[in-house]
Design a binder for these strands. Sequence first.
DNA 1: TAGATTGTTAATCGATTAACAATC
DNA 2: TAGATTGTTAATCGATTAACAATC
Lengths: 220, 220
Amino acid sequence: MKVLRVPEATIGRLSVYSRYLEQLDKNGVTTISSGEIAKGVGVSPAQVRKDLAYFGEFGTRGVGYNVKDLIRYLHRILGLTHPWPVVVVGAGNLGTALCAYRGFRDRGFHIVGVFDNDLLKIGKRIQDLEVLPVEKIPEVVKEHGVRIGIIAVPQQAVQEVANILVKSGVEALLTFGSVAVRVPPHVIVRNIDLTIKLEILTFYLNFRETHPATWLEPNI
Amino acid sequence: MKVLRVPEATIGRLSVYSRYLEQLDKNGVTTISSGEIAKGVGVSPAQVRKDLAYFGEFGTRGVGYNVKDLIRYLHRILGLTHPWPVVVVGAGNLGTALCAYRGFRDRGFHIVGVFDNDLLKIGKRIQDLEVLPVEKIPEVVKEHGVRIGIIAVPQQAVQEVANILVKSGVEALLTFGSVAVRVPPHVIVRNIDLTIKLEILTFYLNFRETHPATWLEPNI
DNA sequence: TAGATTGTTAATCGATTAACAATC
DNA sequence: TAGATTGTTAATCGATTAACAATC
């Protein structure tokens, strides 16, 4: 069986290329080379071509890539040909921030439900959504065909919320903090741990102070 | 010149080991082997030993590691022997969420200042802090010796805020969104782009649907 | 044809894992 | 000594980069 063997970093870069190309497209650029993309986003031209090569041949030798076509291909690869309904569980500050974040909608991620179990928050309006009780999750997930859930609740509630989402049919979760969520194998989970990010910063700050002679610039 | 050549992933894992060991320490565990740490956090025993080996010899052959000692070593490596004052710029939902996040304080990151340029937000209280105008950044940074800044402002204001922070003496920045911040070479920047995280999820969801035969479980 | 740029292979670089001597 | 586990080297695996034939 042939198997998908693409570095996850490649997917992240495809997303970056895609945004950069959309920008160029808006400015009327019609054709671009791997070298120009590379320069625009800060990677090597070989990297750009390799990343694309995992998925097909999208360019013309001697000419480069048609910007509009390449955007279309990238969107197809990334699954961005249609909008994705998303639910956010947790209507605290983080949940509210996520609902208000324009970047999601700009890329086709539509938040179609916000949930909480705090009676003080239920009924509140966030953007154009009403905060619903957690019990309504299955209903909303089914109604909109939601496959992605964002969990923005206190650490001790994360697993419980994950269980509810998975049971409702959600197939991918974005979580925060340091909780290792247990999910069935078909569910894809990615976690963002802000504290680890800060600890990486402190490591570098501390290390270059204590070992200036062995310091190596770590940026990107 | 000998040079620091540690994968950044190693630093992240050291942070994870450290938290796991602290948990064990609380439960009275005094000694632990690389295999037990590995099992506890979900990596290979060789990985644990290799990660530690970059920084020294902390165990006893045939015995394992002393939990309390190892925690101390890890804290020293990560630079967590003292608390780190941090400033947050932007008192919107995200900034407020970050100020309220207990995880930071638990690991020694003390938010000593929140700033905004919105007159409606200045003077507001977040936790035990008053939102200050952006003009106060240099003063607070100097007063507390702040070296780390978190930027939680709208995309178009990120570079400007970064300039102010760097000018005030901040040496490390955590940013959100997709803006490439330009900073002098001594400043360390790490960015969190939530949209890319969602696009990685959509890629996997989309791909396993369109190419079920080549699907490979991507989790961790 | 000459110049440019892709797609792809081979070389390099880097990180993880396996294996084992050292040693408690 | 026998058993266990580290620290480290060598082998493996995977990702990036260099180089170049293909081709517009």
